[in-house]
């Protein structure tokens, strides 16, 4: 394996809290990202994903542990590391007082690039971000998806070796998300290393070669999406609903059915019951045969959401 472009070892970030113990946002995280890889941090809000991204982005000093970005220590080589990164932050920080294209022009200068080169690159990137016809528009007049694409274009102005994306599609409508995913996929094909955080499992499945599941500042599992699903979940999931009043009562019967319950495992949620199994249809047939008639039933492929539920006992989006 080639030398990793990002390597963290027992990375810790804690913040002092008045009259209390320190708040530990990142609690000993270790992972490596290979060049050209698309790597994800999947976890709920407050898991420490953004803090990890900020440390890798060389704008937050780690409390302890080792961190190595492109072979450099962010504590010493902040501007050097940042010159090789593109950063798409969770909160848009485009300059609303400037026009769309101007945002790219001023940003390119921050990397010491000559004006003519920045101008050329800006036009290429507006094309790439499908914003060429908006070059002279005010940023505020763009839709949420367009603003995100402009932020991605801005992050690419210096031809970064690594692109950091913090919750790239949060708050976007499905169509805007798909356009964005398509653009990110193209970057991936061109060999740009992507590091992204998300709390959407479908996003992680679409974009990530490999990911870590993060909760409360710790890594719960690591692997490819398919690998994680195989390891921590079943092939299929049967979701059944019996109505809020009967849910708990039926749950007991389902869990104890035939000694070990239905399927390989059963999870009881407040509004529905999940049965993990090789074949959801088979389980549903067995259930009906046993005299249990759910109001609704759904058989679906297992997802990272199920992996997360298995690992933490909680839902990703709460």
């Amino acid at each position: 394996m080639p030398a990793p472009v990002i390597a963290t070892q027992n990375l810790v970030k804690s913040y002092p809290v008045k009259n209390s113990k320190d708040f530990v946002a990142v609690d000993g995280i270790s992972f490596e990202v290979a060049p050209g890889e698309s790597f994800g941090l999947l976890g709920p809000n407050g898991a420490g994903k953004s803090t990890t991204m900020r440390m890798i982005g060389a704008v937050s000093t780690r409390t302890s542990g080792d961190l190595d970005v492109l072979g450099l220590d962010p504590n010493r080589y902040g501007p050097e590391i940042r010159s090789q990164l593109g950063v798409v932050p969770q909160e848009n920080n485009l300059d609303l007082e400037l026009k769309v294209r101007e945002n790219l022009l001023v940003y390119g200068r921050y990397f010491g690039l000559p004006r003519a080169r920045v101008a050329r690159r800006a036009d290429e990137l507006l094309e790439f971000a499908q914003l060429a016809d908006k070059a002279g528009a005010k940023v505020d007049d763009l839709s949420g998806g367009m603003k995100r694409r402009l932020t991605i274009a801005r992050a690419l102005i210096n031809d970064p070796r690594i692109l950091l994306l913090d919750e790239p599609t949060t708050g976007l409508d499905p169509q805007a998300r798909h356009i964005l995913w398509d653009r990110l996929f193209r970057l991936k094909e061109q060999g740009t290393t992507l590091l992204l955080t998300t709390h959407y499992m479908d996003e992680a499945e679409q974009l990530c070669d490999r990911l870590v599941v993060v909760d409360k500042g710790r890594i719960m599992a690591e692997g490819s999406p398919a690998d994680l699903i195989r390891r921590y979940s079943s092939r299929e999931v049967l979701e059944v609903r019996f109505g809020s009043t009967q849910n708990a009562e039926v749950a007991d019967r389902i869990q104890s059915f035939g000694g070990s319950g239905f399927g390989e495992r059963v999870d009881v949620l407040p509004d529905r019951i999940l049965v993990y199994s090789e074949s959801g249809e088979n389980e549903l047939e067995r259930m009906t045969a046993a005299g249990l008639h759910p109001i609704t039933s759904l058989v679906r492929r297992s997802s990272l959401e199920d992996v997360f539920l298995r690992l933490t006992g909680r839902n990703l989006i709460e």
Partner: peptide, 17 residues
């Protein structure tokens, strides 16, 4: 490779510094 990366990064950031 590392020293090459370092050299490239140092050159890229020099003007901004």
């Amino acid at each position: 490779m590392r020293s090459q990366t370092l050299a490239a990064a140092v050159a890229a950031a020099a003007r901004t510094r």
